[in-house]
Design a binder for these strands. Structure first.
Lengths: 187, 187
DNA sequence: CACCCTCTATACGGCACCGTATGGGCGGGC
DNA sequence: GCCCGCCCATACGGTGCCGTATAGAGGGTG
């Protein structure tokens, strides 16, 4: 077997890069080839068509998003809130995964295949949030609501353009996270 | 002046429809023409190019999003929380404006022109949220954090795919909204 | 070293779209 | 009823992309 000059993984990598920076419509075979410094000649040896690449990209993203993060977080024995923050940072602060995540969310709004993958990943993350929040909160409904709030904050704040006079966006985000994850409600 | 068969507004309307359902990349002159039942012949009489249409679409959206909603909400004298809910429903539950809003948010991630418009609109909405929340909350930092939480929940929950065993998404959203807008924190 | 197998370059037909040019058609003003 | 101006259909060149076909280059393998 000859050495693979531009292995299958390179196409997926480059595809994910294009997806992250330009959305799913920016994932174009010829554009990826140019970015890789080759032509599309070898592409169709790995993938039946552009759609096959998109599915392979979803496969890779799902594996990276779920397995690696859960694996790294699961083996820790720290403060649950710290684990949540770590998980959030791994999935959403990583320069690589965050833009990818946001792009896939928009993609999923119009594509049922992408939506199904996102559903699996989000369910995993939501389960993690429930578990963590459940360690310091008893009411199941409140756990669910707080989990949704934490998740919405993590994702939604990247889709907002509003400014905060006197604060940075990160500061306000931190305060909001503090309310959701640390502050009990008055009864 | 001859009767306008396909007035400028019709192109903008159709453009916004395409944007809402397919993202900014789906706004294509020839596709809009087909949707309108004409050819693109008359388009370039109204707009210099596709970019001019996109800017006009942003103009229309900004006016509709800010003016109409604020006008309708501003003249009410009800419970502040009710006003927030009404404003949210007008902007985000409307079948017309919600998909448009989400599509523009994704667009703004990659286009500075769209981002500037979104910033203006979001700042208006954020100001509304601050004002409303300020009527039952004193700490300025908490007002800011709660406003961000409410906004993130309104937007972010539409980008999440997670499921809630035993509850509908709307139910959990309502519970989360209740926490942000109604429940004081323990001190 | 020669063979083979894999990846790559090149070329092709097809399609969708952009922006421009041009002529016809249809309604309103007189 | 005639003219005029706006709107639209049609056609064109150019570009970017898809998917296919074919042949060449280059490294592993015997």
């Amino acid at each position: 077997m000859g050495a693979k000059r531009t292995p299958r993984e390179a196409w997926i990598e480059e595809g994910l890069r294009a997806l992250a920076s330009g959305g799913v419509d920016a994932v174009r075979v010829e554009a990826l080839a140019k970015a890789l410094g080759v032509t599309k000649g070898g592409f169709y040896g790995y993938f039946a068509d552009r759609n096959a690449l998109l599915e392979a990209m979803l496969d890779t993203w799902e594996r990276e998003s779920i397995d690696e993060v859960l694996e790294r977080v699961g083996h820790l024995d720290g403060d649950p809130r710290e684990k949540i923050r770590l998980a959030g940072q791994l999935t959403l602060s990583a320069d690589r995964l965050l833009p990818l995540d946001l792009a896939i969310r928009d993609w999923a709004r119009r594509d049922e295949v992408a939506a199904a993958r996102l559903r699996r990943v989000d369910n995993e993350r939501m389960a993690l949030l429930r578990e963590m929040i459940g360690t310091f909160c008893d009411d199941p409904d409140e756990i669910e609501a707080r989990s949704l709030l934490a998740f919405s904050l993590a994702i939604g704040s990247h889709f907002l353009a509003a400014e905060h006079p006197g604060h940075t966006h990160a500061e306000v985000r931190a305060m909001a996270g503090d309310i959701v994850l640390n502050r009990p409600l008055a009864r």
